[in-house]
Simulated assay, not measured.
Amino acid sequence: MASVFFYEPYYDIERLVNQAFAPRDTQSTFQRQQNLVDGAVRSLKPRMDLHENDEQNVVTATFEFPGVSKDNIQIDVHNGRLTVSAETKEAEDVNESEYAVRERRFGKYSRTLQLPQGVKDEEIKASMENGVLNITFPKTTAEQAPKRITIS
């Protein structure tokens, strides 16, 4: 049984094109990144790798959260969807005009995955080390595994 995971391959391309053609004014990089999309502020998406292990019947989602402690990351499960989110804030003690180069991103990070049907909350495990969050959950549950029916 193949799992279905939604992935937005063009998200980064769209973001880069929008940044390239954004007006160069006094707005900070963060303010330019937070342009309104469809009437809502678009949050940043953490980088993710998704690995399926058929032998162990496990899916591992690995997220990058550089510089974010595990206490500042939220993992929520609702209606079969797993949402990982965090928020980083820029230092307020540095004046904007004092930067020579500014590439770090600040703001709300969020990513949502559709879980396989039947996954229970207690089957989801999370660990974090060096800014890398690993979340594992079953690829299929016993209830979803194929069953053979014998003919009587």
Results as ranks from 00 to 15, higher is better:
Val58Trp: 00
Lys120Pro: 02
Leu133Pro: 00
Pro9Lys: 03
Leu113Asp: 00
Ala126Val: 03
Thr150Trp: 12
Thr83Glu: 03
Leu16His: 11
Asn18Ile: 00
Pro116Ile: 06
Ser127Ala: 13
Val17Pro: 05
Glu98Phe: 14
Glu96Leu: 14
Gly80Ser: 07
Gly118Tyr: 02
Ala126Asn: 10
Arg24Val: 11
Arg24Tyr: 12
Val77Tyr: 06
Phe137Arg: 02
Thr60Glu: 08
Ser28Asn: 04
Leu44Cys: 04
Asn130Leu: 09
Ala126Pro: 04
Asn35Val: 15
Thr88Glu: 10
Thr141Pro: 06
Gln34His: 14
Thr62Val: 11
Val37Tyr: 10
Thr141Met: 07
Ser85Asp: 07
Ile73His: 02
Ile124Lys: 05
Glu87Leu: 09
Gly39Cys: 05
Gln117His: 09
Pro116Tyr: 08
Asp54Trp: 03
Ala86Val: 09
Lys139Thr: 08
Met1Arg: 08
Thr136Gly: 01
Phe5Met: 06
Asn72His: 12
Asn134Val: 02
Asp76Arg: 13
Gln33Ala: 07
Asn134Tyr: 01
Ala91Asp: 12
Glu87Thr: 13
Arg104Thr: 11
His78Tyr: 10
His51Ile: 11
Glu103Tyr: 11
Ile149Thr: 13
Phe106Ile: 04
Lys147Pro: 01
Gln114Pro: 01
Met48Asp: 11
Gly107Met: 07
Met48Arg: 09
Gln27Asn: 15
Glu64Pro: 00
Asp49His: 04
Ile149Val: 15
Asp93Ser: 14
Glu103Thr: 14
Arg32Lys: 15
Asp71His: 10
Ala100Trp: 14
Gln31Val: 13
Asp76Leu: 04
Ser152Leu: 15
Thr141Asp: 08
Thr112Trp: 01
Val77Ala: 09
Val41Gly: 09
Arg111Gly: 06
Pro138Lys: 03
Tyr99Gly: 01
Thr26His: 12
Val119Met: 03
Arg81Cys: 02
Glu52Ala: 08
Asn53Thr: 00
Arg81Ile: 05
Ile151Gln: 14
Thr150Val: 11
Asn95Tyr: 12
Tyr99Cys: 04
Ser43His: 12
Ile151His: 13
Met48Thr: 14
Glu143Ile: 04
Pro46Ile: 08
